[in-house]
């Protein structure tokens, strides 16, 4: 019987991922500073990238570069000798996505800072309540 327990307990790398996700989520929810939230988001993303990277790994395997390549048909390739390259390649894309997300997030944070003069969420909220147009309007 395969249960979620056996799947996870047997493999410590999953635990690491779960802990990192928890840290990331905690930062995103509990922290009031927007940059800290963004850092939390990045930790969250990194956790999932690590998950992918770890599932490609095999004990005793090496880099997926065929040593005697280039036409030597006599050489046998054993998949077990090489780590699975596909998750790693996928993560190249995911890392690009994550960096781009971080870039956009920081750009937005800068705009917020220029507009409100702070990155603390509660202070921003106070300013918003101060100058919100739709709170003044009473008609309709």
């Amino acid at each position: 019987m395969e249960t979620i327990g056996t799947l996870i307990i047997a493999k410590y790398n999953y635990w690491a991922v779960v802990v990192l996700i928890a840290i990331g989520l905690y930062a995103m929810i509990a922290k009031k500073n927007l940059v800290k939230k963004i850092i939390g988001m990045n930790i969250f993303q990194t956790a999932i990238i690590l998950f992918y990277v770890s599932i490609g790994a095999k004990r005793g395997a090496t880099l997926p570069i065929i040593e005697h390549g280039h036409g030597e048909s006599t050489h046998m390739v054993h998949a077990a000798d090489y780590i699975n390259p596909l998750p790693h390649v996928l993560m190249l894309t995911a890392i690009v996505v994550s960096v781009a997300t971080l870039g956009v997030a920081l750009a937005l944070a800068m705009r917020i800072y220029f507009h409100y003069g702070t990155l603390e969420e509660d202070e921003i909220q106070k300013k918003i309540i101060g100058d919100e147009p739709d709170k003044i309007d009473s008609s309709g």
Binding site: I21, F44, I48, F51, T101, A105, L108, A109
Partner: peptide, 23 residues
């Protein structure tokens, strides 16, 4: 920009969860 950032944070969580599931 603030709304955009909030959207970004939530959206990233969503995408990451999906990515985790695909993994």
């Amino acid at each position: 920009s603030l709304s955009g950032l909030n959207y970004l944070l939530m959206g990233t969580i969503g995408a990451s969860l999906y990515l985790f599931g695909v993994g």
